[in-house]
């Protein structure tokens, strides 16, 4: 669905933020786009949605360059920025005006989600709290039925019950024919929703694997002080280490610790990528 080829991009006068970045996004997947603060997660989403233009290289959406902002591309793409302004009108009026831009817009879905989120559709959007506005836009994004959904930190600003509602709504949404990219550093909020981990660091994608292949190839275990087992990465904890090891065929599958994986790959991506290139051998 999205093909990014040798993309280079810099903000004026700054050194390039992205250097020869390559990435393919396919439908049927929910990508977790992770990166340190300032890694360029938001900028990448803005390049995919055509709001920024690459200096060189290309970002193609169904073979059309994103920078051309073709109506057929934009009507099938929805980006939910982390910060946004909404006009002074109520939710229903907003839907009335904006929905026609999305041919597949599903009015039933949005009313279901707004009810679930308990959004007052009679109030002016400007009078809603940040979290309420965010939830309104999440509802709109899902109801748009756009096949490419870019969500920038969607759970930022949501209260605790709303985060759970968000996960339920995402789990219930029919995403088989859609490609969802969720950029976040809130690993714990979203780790159950994504099925692919995409890591942005130092200007490129340093890691991009499905959760299935990660749990097939790696074990996330706590090693006690007296246990010796070679690991790709480990962090000290009380009475031992949290470690990422090559999965032994005898190991039962373990729960992926995304924070540990993130820290490990950021520190040294090569050993991790070798594991996935050579079918699980260091």
């Amino acid at each position: 669905m999205v093909t990014i080829e040798n993309l280079t991009f810099a903000f004026k006068k700054n050194p390039p933020l992205f250097n020869q970045l390559n990435l393919k996004l396919e439908k049927g997947n929910t990508y977790g786009l992770f990166g340190l603060n300032g890694a360029g997660k938001t900028t990448l989403l803005n390049l995919i949605s055509g709001m920024l233009f690459p200096d060189s290289g290309e970002c193609l959406i169904h073979e059309a360059p994103a920078r051309e902002r073709l109506p057929k591309v934009l009507s099938d793409l929805f980006i939910l920025p982390e910060q946004f302004e909404l006009p002074k009108m109520d939710a229903l009026k907003y839907i009335d005006i904006q929905a026609p831009f999305y041919p597949g817009f599903d009015f039933e879905t949005i009313s279901l989600i707004l009810t679930e989120f308990q959004i007052d559709t009679g109030k002016n959007l400007t009078e809603l709290s940040y979290g309420q506005r965010k939830k309104f836009m999440i509802a709109f994004a899902l109801a748009s039925n756009a096949s490419l959904l870019l969500l920038d930190e969607p759970t930022n600003g949501l209260d605790i019950p709303s985060k759970s509602q968000f996960r339920k709504i995402m789990a219930a949404a029919d995403l088989d024919n859609r490609c969802v990219v969720i950029s976040t550093h809130q690993v714990r909020d979203l780790n159950t929703l994504i099925d692919r981990v995409t890591l942005l660091h130092s200007g490129t994608i340093i890691f991009d694997q499905t959760l299935k292949s990660i749990s097939d190839k790696l074990s996330f275990i706590k090693l006690k002080t007296d246990e010796t087992r070679s690991s790709l990465y480990s962090e000290d904890t009380l009475g031992g280490q949290f470690a990422i090891c090559l999965k032994d065929p005898a190991d039962e599958e373990t729960l992926i610790d995304l924070e540990l994986l993130f820290n490990g790959v950021i520190q040294q991506p090569e050993p991790f990528n070798r594991v996935f290139q050579n079918g699980g051998v260091l």
Binding site: K168, L193, K212
Partner: peptide, 17 residues
């Protein structure tokens, strides 16, 4: 599958496994 995915708040691909 969908009911389980929603209840567990997980990606349906996880539930389907």
């Amino acid at each position: 599958v969908r009911e389980i995915a929603v209840q567990m708040e997980v990606n349906p691909n996880t539930a389907i496994r």
